[in-house]
Design a protein around this nucleic acid. Structure first.
Length: 492
RNA sequence: GCCCCCAUCGUCUAGUCUGGCCCAGGACGCCAGCCUUUCAAGCUGGAAAUCAAGGGUUCGAAUCCCUUUGGGGGCACCA
């Protein structure tokens, strides 16, 4: 095991199961994973399901599905277990309660019976007086009797952490350097809610310690709650982990990436035909770079070269154009067989209307190299290959007849092509090219005229992969049928 | 309002710690050309940043210091 600061690296991805995994969260997961793999550490997944109101049942499945899709394997967490479990915070309630009791016992926390109404009123008042919003500490002096009355009425008090006073709290952030806060600016925050669940602050701090997390790498939005966490570690008598606050991913308007900016869920990108390889590479470059020129880094290269020192401080706009370009690069780097498999899997996930339900894999494998340089996403595969699978092409005479040609000359060319195909020996790209070039010369047609005609006749489209390669893959039978069909279309 | 963070081409970034090799490099996108039977891909070239602004320090500053401005994040019994 690689050792940093004499401790084996342990990092965690701690999502809250409130919906589909968001690309911002996933980028955080990626950096944690990269850091763990780079230093032979452990990557832990912990589900922070402490908010019963926002909890979405299927969310955990989506989160894990996203990680699996990207092939970000976790060493401990849901499904795989581990020695620091359970990894669902809802199953760790006693731990939080015990810690809260300890804090209360030592005078570092107290019960609070203030109603939501009073809290709301308090904030309103503070806003009016232009004072900092925050709890005023009223229940610090709550008597045992008052508490008992409150409880006897069937209420459950919350527990608040008694924030330290008159101190400067500082953190030496791995990416931001030294950051300081005056402790008095932070109020006495809730650590146990009235439903018995802990708030993020308590659960997160406790679990990071209990799970021996060495580096907390999270988004910058958490920076301002860090003094609370440091104070909690202090009151609990625990050594805080190292913090690294990662730059955020922004929408085009530079605000936090959110739904109104378009697709924000990782799985949506799978649906849009992006490869996991491109997502990883692209997300890694959102806030991190290797040097002044390297753009394409596969997971192996990333693991080898990732470092927190090279994480930038400023937020990054999610630039889908670059992702699309990169996806094209990765698509082209696939072996034809692999590409065919990806396309098939994608079609299974999102069946396109224009493609038959089951396609012959052998055929698709031969088609794959023809469309490979033409794909930006897997979505494009359907329209690019549609004509390979169609049975009746439905030729449009107007598309068949090329500039400078008429119905008669077009028919002559097609009929000559048909007999040529019948007579040919090998039906290969080279043979086709040689034979058709010879025929073209004999018929005194330009390349553009003759080959465009043939293209439309065999594919029913003005746009296709290279003609003779396409014809070879289509095969003699299909080519004959289609040219025959084109001749028929001219008759009507 | 208060606290904190950030600031290099439209975007992602290199360079900032350890001033000079930077009148700022790469990539995406954009434009043009080449290749070409179509569309792509590929190749070549181009436009694009007074290094947020102002003031210092210095022989010399994107890089060090100060001020200002702009942007973002946070201020819940949400995470």
């Amino acid at each position: 095991m690689n050792i940093i600061d004499n401790k084996p690296v342990r990092v965690r991805y701690a999502p809250s199961p409130t919906g589909l995994p968001h690309v911002g969260n996933v980028r955080t997961a990626l950096f944690n994973w990269l850091f763990a793999r780079r230093f032979n550490g452990a990557f832990v997944v912990r589900i922070e399901d402490t908010d019963q109101n926002r909890l979405v049942r299927e969310a955990v499945d989506g989160i894990l599905e996203g990680l699996r899709w990207l092939n970000l394997d976790w060493d401990e967490g849901p499904e795989v277990g581990g020695t620091y479990g359970p990894y669902m915070q809802s199953e760790r309630l006693e731990i939080y309660h015990e810690a809260a009791q300890g804090l209360i016992g030592r005078g570092c926390a107290y019960y609070c019976i203030c109603s939501p109404e009073r809290l709301k009123e308090l904030r309103k008042q503070q806003a009016k007086e232009k004072k900092n919003p925050g709890y005023d500490g009223k229940c610090q002096n709550l008597s045992a009797r008052e508490l008992q009355v409150y409880r006897d009425a069937g209420n459950v008090p919350v527990v608040r952490f008694k924030m330290v006073r008159d101190e400067t709290i500082s953190v030496d952030d791995i990416v931001r350097g030294n950051v300081e806060w005056k402790s008095n600016l932070t109020d006495d925050f809730v650590i146990i809610k009235s439903d018995g669940f802990p708030t993020y602050h308590l659960a997160n701090v406790l679990d990071d310690h209990l799970m021996e997390i060495t580096h907390v790498l999270r988004a910058e939005e958490w920076l301002s709650s860090t003094p609370r966490h440091i104070a909690l570690y202090g009151a609990l008598g625990l050594e805080p982990p190292q913090f690294g606050h990662l730059p955020m991913i922004l929408g085009p308007d530079r605000s936090k990436l959110s739904k109104r900016h378009g697709s924000t869920s990782l799985l949506e990108y799978r649906g849009m035909g992006y490869l996991p390889e491109s997502m990883i590479n692209f997300m890694a470059l959102l806030g991190w770079s290797l040097d002044d020129r390297t753009e394409i880094l596969d997971r192996g290269a990333l693991v080898e070269s990732f470092s927190l020192e090279r994480v930038v401080k400023s937020g990054a706009i999610f630039n889908i154009d670059k992702l699309e370009w990169m996806n094209g690069i990765y698509i082209r780097s696939l072996s034809p067989d692999d590409l065919a498999a990806r396309i098939r899997d994608y079609w299974q996930l999102a069946p396109p209307a224009e493609i038959p339900d089951s396609v012959d894999m052998e055929y698709l494998r031969r088609i794959a190299p023809l469309i490979q340089p033409r794909l930006k996403t897997l979505v494009d595969a359907a329209e690019r290959t549609e004509f390979f699978f169609k049975v009746g092409l439905g030729h449009v005479p107007k598309d068949l007849i090329q500039k400078g040609m008429d119905v008669a000359s077009t028919r002559r060319a097609l009929e000559a092509s048909l007999s040529l195909i019948n007579e040919m020996d090998a039906f290969s790209t080279d043979a086709l090219e040689a034979a058709f070039e010879e025929l073209r010369l004999r018929m005194e047609l330009s390349r553009r005229q003759f080959f465009s005609l043939l293209r439309v006749a065999t594919t029913a489209s003005r746009v296709s992969p290279p003609l003779f390669e396409t014809m070879e893959v289509l095969g003699r039978g299909r080519c004959k049928d289609r040219i025959g069909g084109a001749i028929g279309a001219l008759r009507d």
